[in-house]
Computed example of a mutant assay.
Amino acid sequence: MDETEIYTAMRHFADSWGLLAMTLFFVGALLFTLRPGAKASANEAKLIPLKED
């Protein structure tokens, strides 16, 4: 295989499946952040630096 053919194949893969993977990751992160009960755990996490040992 020629180097340009490898580059072209990788480029096509990244343009299609890479974009799909990044979109699914973004949607998953968004759903994880906006899930029910996330506010309570976020409020607990923000107080961690203020806790004394």
Rank of each mutant, 00 (worst) to 15 (best):
residue 1 M to R: 12
residue 48 I to E: 13
residue 23 T to D: 09
residue 46 K to Q: 11
residue 16 S to R: 14
residue 19 L to D: 14
residue 24 L to E: 10
residue 21 A to M: 06
residue 37 G to Q: 09
residue 32 F to P: 08
residue 15 D to K: 14
residue 40 A to K: 14
residue 43 N to T: 02
residue 17 W to S: 12
residue 11 R to S: 06
residue 41 S to Y: 08
residue 45 A to Y: 08
residue 13 F to A: 04
residue 48 I to P: 04
residue 36 P to V: 01
residue 21 A to W: 08
residue 51 K to F: 03
residue 53 D to F: 04
residue 14 A to I: 00
residue 6 I to E: 11
residue 26 F to M: 09
residue 33 T to L: 12
residue 34 L to K: 15
residue 20 L to G: 04
residue 23 T to S: 13
residue 52 E to I: 01
residue 4 T to S: 10
residue 38 A to V: 02
residue 32 F to S: 12
residue 18 G to S: 11
residue 32 F to G: 12
residue 36 P to Q: 07
residue 18 G to N: 07
residue 17 W to N: 14
residue 14 A to R: 15
residue 43 N to H: 08
residue 20 L to Y: 13
residue 53 D to C: 00
residue 14 A to D: 13
residue 51 K to V: 01
residue 24 L to P: 06
residue 4 T to I: 01
residue 29 A to G: 09
residue 29 A to I: 01
residue 51 K to T: 02
residue 51 K to D: 05
residue 18 G to H: 12
residue 39 K to S: 05
residue 3 E to Q: 04
residue 51 K to R: 15
residue 23 T to M: 05
residue 12 H to L: 01
residue 27 V to P: 07
residue 30 L to N: 14
residue 14 A to C: 02
residue 32 F to C: 11
residue 13 F to I: 00
residue 42 A to L: 10
residue 16 S to L: 01
residue 52 E to Q: 11
residue 42 A to R: 15
residue 30 L to F: 11
residue 31 L to Q: 11
residue 24 L to D: 10
residue 28 G to P: 02
residue 16 S to M: 01
residue 28 G to R: 13
residue 13 F to R: 13
residue 17 W to C: 02
residue 10 M to D: 10
residue 27 V to N: 06
residue 16 S to V: 03
residue 16 S to N: 11
residue 27 V to W: 05
residue 48 I to L: 10
residue 15 D to E: 13
residue 6 I to H: 09
residue 26 F to D: 05
residue 21 A to Y: 13
residue 28 G to S: 10
residue 34 L to I: 00
residue 40 A to N: 11
residue 20 L to V: 06
residue 34 L to P: 07
residue 7 Y to G: 00
residue 39 K to G: 05
residue 20 L to R: 13
residue 32 F to N: 15
residue 22 M to G: 08
residue 39 K to R: 14
residue 50 L to E: 14
